[in-house]
């Protein structure tokens, strides 16, 4: 019990440190940005026709008149109290904006995450089991091609193929145009999320598949597989009974660790598909110098990534018998 408390305390401390670091970093990046908030958001022409007071008012609104340190500390003081401020672009509380965006992004992220995990594992196992033979070569070749293809390019390709030529799937957005909120069905949402999710997962698949293959090849070369063969177990049964079991733990770590990559990829993919999600909000906030929104999005996404890794750690303890019974990590 005491150990569990210590573990939780350590993790919480790390999480705080991480969030602090990430927020400072994104704040500094925004400060260093060459974009002038007034010129980007109000426009050169409009600015020119304004009086001195009006410009000063606008500068105050965009925070351009405050020294950076003061500005950050002001934000931090609010954030500690749970108030992430108001988005300058959307004129709504940051938490509300993020809530909406996350709502639609979640479909996309979850579908992509599950798809890439399941597909990656299946492909990796197949390649490893057929090491050196044509299924292995095929899968590995495909993975290498995919992992050296930029996600946005793939997204455009999919759009052309499935939406423009074949017309099977909608071109963009997360819900049909001109339909009331209540009338949007789950099928609608899935249909809109499918193509972006596919793009996202395809790039995630190759990483998971290649790692899984490598691990399975290691496992199949191990002593206990040799004895399983010597005991007369069949090759297929060996892969399923011993291979899968020993690959599962590293695969799980990889899967939860890939949350970060999926979120990172979603920024670009949402842009291409005009999918109104968190990634798109991040881009808008960054380009529009919307400091509160950008910091808010950064906090939430780092929290998600951290949560993914934490979950992997915890699951490891539940699943690995050596950890469950208080043994050291292998």
């Amino acid at each position: 019990m005491k150990q569990a408390l210590f573990f939780a305390g350590k993790k919480a401390f790390r999480a705080l440190l991480l969030l602090l670091g990430v927020s400072v970093a994104s704040f500094l990046l925004l400060c260093a940005s060459p974009l002038d908030p007034l010129r980007t958001n109000v426009g050169q022409a409009a600015l020119g026709s304004m009086s001195q007071e009006q410009v000063a008012q606008l500068e105050a609104y965009w925070g351009a008149d405050q020294p950076p340190v003061e500005r950050y500390l002001g934000w931090l003081a609010g954030a500690v109290r749970g108030d992430l401020g108001t988005s300058l672009l959307y004129r709504q509380p940051v938490l509300t904006v993020i809530g909406q965006r996350l709502g639609s992004s979640l479909w996309l992220l979850l579908t992509a995450w599950v798809l890439s995990g399941v597909l990656g594992l299946a492909l990796g196992i197949t390649a490893g089991a057929f090491r050196g033979r044509w299924p292995d070569k095929l899968i590995r070749g495909w993975c290498l091609v995919i992992s050296s293809t930029p996600a946005f390019w793939l997204a455009l390709l999919f759009l052309l193929l499935f939406s423009v030529w074949l017309g099977w799937l909608p071109i963009g957005l997360s819900v049909p145009i001109g339909v009331e909120e209540e009338a949007v069905t789950l099928a609608d949402r899935l249909q809109h999320a499918l193509l972006p999710a596919l793009t996202l997962s395809v790039t995630g698949v190759s990483n998971i598949a290649l790692h899984t293959r490598e691990k399975l090849v290691d496992v199949l070369g191990s002593d206990y597989i040799l004895l399983a063969r010597a005991r007369g177990e069949r090759e297929g049964a060996i892969v399923l009974r011993h291979g899968l079991r020993n690959v599962a733990l590293p695969a799980l770590t990889l899967q939860f660790g890939s949350v970060g990559e999926i979120i990172g990829g979603s920024v670009l993919v949402e842009q291409v598909f005009s999918y109104p999600g968190l990634g798109q909000a991040a881009v808008t906030a960054g380009l529009g110098s919307d400091l509160p929104l950008l910091l808010g999005v950064t906090l939430v996404t780092s929290g998600l990534v951290f949560g993914g890794n934490l979950l992997a750690d915890l699951l490891y303890g539940v699943i690995d018998p050596r950890m469950k019974r208080g043994e050291g990590r292998p």
Partner: peptide
Amino acid sequence: LRGKEIVLVPQGVTYLDPLMKVGPQLRKG
């Protein structure tokens, strides 16, 4: 013949699957 007429008593404990209990291992599925 493996495991039936010709059997191996291997060199060490690394020849047991670390994540499978002894019983299921000996039962070969």
